[in-house]
């Protein structure tokens, strides 16, 4: 240590020390980051077991872990997961496809925009959850109703970002393409579509989390399987561990979906 300091002093180079300090700080930050979640879980365990709180309403993580394990072992978890994922993915796909198609139409053709945009702008601000009652009236507890809610939530976000993206395509690119003899069809399919893609992808990523919001509303409205449905049933049975396990599962799934989409987006619009 003394030698170390002497060396540093000998060199008289403050930059070496500064760099070493920066490295030390970075390692410390990584260590603290790695400890964050375990420390939180430990604190939770201690508080829940200390008697300050009602252990039935606020179970410790060990109880939650057992609940999750039971849920998985019974096979019910897999059924719930597939039911929920099916709703999210089909709803997202249908809503996104509709949103991209109509966004390109309204963005590119003023007549279509005049016809549809006012309507969409009136419907868009209504929170999708507010449609739950009427969806129950129309579709009962069927899968169509669930799909409708997710599609509804996804559609408007994707439509708006596509519409704006199409309008923001660099005019210079369009002029350059025109000068090179690009026909109308190619212009729309290639230059406009790819020019708007960065905006479309941002809309799609936002729509990923929206599809999970609407999934919650859809499953709370009443169904027979699903992650959120399981949370609700567990709540009615006062199985608080199971409720928290469900929340954790939902968080993990939607986190994974967002990350996967971010990676996909980076590959799709690599030139950005």
């Amino acid at each position: 240590m003394a030698l170390d300091e002497a060396l540093t002093a000998d060199q008289g180079d403050g930059r070496v020390r500064a760099r070493r300090d920066a490295g030390r700080l970075q390692r410390l930050n990584i260590l603290i980051g790695a400890l964050s979640v375990p420390a939180f879980v430990l604190l939770w365990e201690l508080v829940a077991r200390s008697g300050i709180v009602n252990i039935v309403l606020f179970p410790p993580p060990s109880v939650v872990a057992v609940a999750i394990f039971e849920w998985m072992r019974s096979g019910q978890f897999f059924l719930d997961l597939t039911a929920s994922l099916y709703r999210v993915t089909t709803g997202f796909t249908v809503g996104a496809a509709l949103g991209i198609f109509l966004g390109i139409m309204t963005g590119q053709f003023p007549v279509v925009s005049s016809l549809l945009s006012p309507l969409f702008h009136i419907l868009r601000p209504i929170p999708p959850i507010a449609f739950v009652p009427i969806v129950i009236l129309w579709f009962g507890l069927s899968e169509t109703g669930k799909l409708f809610l997710v599609v509804w939530g996804v559609f408007f976000t994707v439509w708006l970002s596509t519409h704006i993206g199409v309008q923001k395509v660099d005019r210079g690119l369009i002029r350059a393409a025109l000068m090179l003899g690009t026909p109308r069809r190619q212009m729309l399919q290639e230059i406009i579509m790819l020019g708007a893609l960065p905006y479309i992808v941002v809309g799609l990523r936002t729509a990923v989390s929206i599809s999970f919001y609407t999934l919650v509303a859809a499953e709370l409205a009443g169904t027979f399987a699903g992650i959120v449905y399981r949370i609700e049933i567990a709540q009615q049975n006062l199985q608080t561990g199971q409720v928290m396990g469900g929340l954790a599962a939902l968080g993990l799934i939607s986190f994974a979906a967002d990350r996967m989409f971010a990676a996909f987006a980076e590959r799709t619009v690599w030139w950005r």
Partner: peptide, 30 residues
């Protein structure tokens, strides 16, 4: 615009999703 009239703008306005080769090949392809 006509294909027998070419234009170079102040900004390059290259297609960012295309390689140099495919940018140049765009016109003949069209």
């Amino acid at each position: 615009p006509r294909p027998d009239v070419g234009m170079v703008f102040q900004q390059p306005h290259l297609f960012p999703w295309k390689s140099v080769r495919r940018n140049i090949a765009h016109g003949p392809r069209m």
